[in-house]
């Protein structure tokens, strides 16, 4: 489903990703594990097209998307800080990712992420866990081929983190979504993924 070949990214002369190779199967959930600063987020941003590398290619469903802008790659991303639009309510955020916004679909998705009736809630009134669910729901409604999760659970307390990881896994599995979840937490990685990949296995870049 996803293949990354020789991804190379450097910032200000410092090599962050050095010829990284990664392969993820259809409907597979992969956890990318590694310490802070090892290039996990950069790899996700490279796959999404938010970071232009100096080399390498990204293939999604066999198609080379390396030269496509982020909005044309069919890649969804849940950001570490969630990036929920503060000027829109929950329904507005969910509708943003839909080509034709439909109230029923939004309500249905909110039900799936256990936030039924949250349509008109302001973003600043959401708790940490609720925010994570809205961000996930927003990305899912855009119907991406691949979903990238950049440590979205990092700021939650331990119990909530593990419970939510289980919920996220269930939602992704029910919908057959291919996903990469970046984390430095081995417990979360185990809970959410089919397969754990250590970042050090795929890159030779130094921290």
């Amino acid at each position: 489903m996803l293949e990354v070949k020789n991804a190379t990214v450097s910032f200000s002369g410092k090599l962050i990703l050095d010829a990284v190779n990664l392969s993820v199967g259809d409907s597979e959930i992969v956890a990318l594990l590694g310490p802070s600063g090892c290039g996990k987020t950069t790899l996700l941003r490279y796959i999404a097209g938010l970071e232009k590398g100096s080399g390498g290619e990204v293939l999604i469903a066999g198609k080379d998307v390396s030269n496509l802008p982020p909005e044309k790659r069919s890649v969804g991303m849940v950001f570490q800080n969630l990036a929920l639009f503060p000027h829109l309510d929950v329904a507005g955020n969910l509708a943003f990712g839909m080509v034709i916004p439909e109230a029923e679909k939004i309500a249905e998705m909110l039900g799936i992420v256990n936030l039924a009736g949250f349509q008109e809630r302001k973003i600043e009134t959401l708790s940490g866990g609720e925010g994570q669910r809205v961000a996930l729901a927003r990305s899912l409604l855009a119907e991406p081929t691949i979903l990238l999760l950049d440590e979205p659970l990092a700021s939650l307390d331990e119990d909530l983190k593990l419970a939510l990881a289980e919920d996220v896994r269930k939602i992704l599995k029910d919908r057959g979504i291919t996903a990469i979840h970046v984390t430095h937490d081995r417990q979360v990685a185990k809970k959410i993924s089919d397969r754990i990949i250590e970042m050090s296995e795929v890159t030779q870049a130094e921290d």
Partner: peptide, 28 residues
Amino acid sequence: DPSYLEAARTLGASQLKVIFKVHIPLLR
């Protein structure tokens, strides 16, 4: 925060949609 604009793009928004639906409202 650039992640607002990046999130909009990963949600499939065109440049114009990012400008009018995210950038300008956030800078209101």
